[in-house]
Design a protein around this nucleic acid. Sequence first.
DNA 1: TTATATTTTCAGTAATTTTTGAAAATTCAA
DNA 2: TTGAATTTTCAAAAATTACTGAAAATATAA
Lengths: 168, 168
Amino acid sequence: MKLQEARQQFISNWGAFGTHWGINRTMAQIHALLMISPDPLTQDDIMAQLDISRGNTNMNIRELINWGLVDRVILHGERKEYFTAEKDIWKVVRQIVKERKKRELEPMLQLLDKLEDVEGDKRDKQVKAFTDVVSGIKKLGKQADKTLDVMIRAEESWFVGSLMKLFR
Amino acid sequence: MKLQEARQQFISNWGAFGTHWGINRTMAQIHALLMISPDPLTQDDIMAQLDISRGNTNMNIRELINWGLVDRVILHGERKEYFTAEKDIWKVVRQIVKERKKRELEPMLQLLDKLEDVEGDKRDKQVKAFTDVVSGIKKLGKQADKTLDVMIRAEESWFVGSLMKLFR
DNA sequence: TTATATTTTCAGTAATTTTTGAAAATTCAA
DNA sequence: TTGAATTTTCAAAAATTACTGAAAATATAA
């Protein structure tokens, strides 16, 4: 397969993949494009390569910067801003995990704390079913929270090595 | 907090949570409702409690059944079908992991295999950047694939126990 | 069988999300 | 400063996704 075709396929599939994970298609495509681009790109490069509007490009780049997946780069003597993405996939995954933990897991755990001490007789089937499910989720969520904390701090070699031992 | 309010909050938040993970709101809400319901419910119960149409209810129940998260139940001497959801959150998570692995991770790995052997000189910066990223993702993906396989087969106690040791 | 209860389908509609593009704001070289 | 280059904003339009409700299909009791 030729490079150009392979790049297109990668970008398009990474975009489709994103939509299954609550990330919008364009944002995932910009991320894909920047990951496979050896040099930083300008907003106009991205617009041209993905054939999308200036506004769309700008908003999604900004969102990628918020997620910590893309950085602004100032190039010596250039007026325009350039953008670049982390290319080490392990670092990318860690960054995504870190953000999603903060944005989703932590608020969910807070909610569960509130919901767990619902009024009513634990003998009531309805009350029991509810609190059992809520505490189960809370327990698993707390475990996940701790595990992810360690993972976020870990080096790739350490993590993969440990997992290898654990999971053969 | 009163049970009814807590249930409402749980259902509504579980729905919002789902949308961040590529699952539609209603499907996640039906799942939430069934998880906290001690007894199986009919389609009409679900329609009434979530205030949604028959068609919507039916389609999303079927989808939940496809995901292996909800089961049809025939109740002795009853004409109507009843539905129930797995309440052990560890089993729920394992089932979701299993499905997503099959639906997303495996096809992605197949694609990466194809994309990895792109034509062209490895000295070419463009080619190198592309293949480096693709092989990096493939490597991590394969590791994840193996790890998840073991997780799917594991008992909760084994998994949590091992993680505890590993991650303090 | 037949009648009735129940489930499923799906075209049309509604709601939500994404994208555009032009105007406003900002930046920076001269 | 000024003004051209560049970035940002955001109302409106387009695209996508989800939902409704009634008709069709299916299942079951009599």
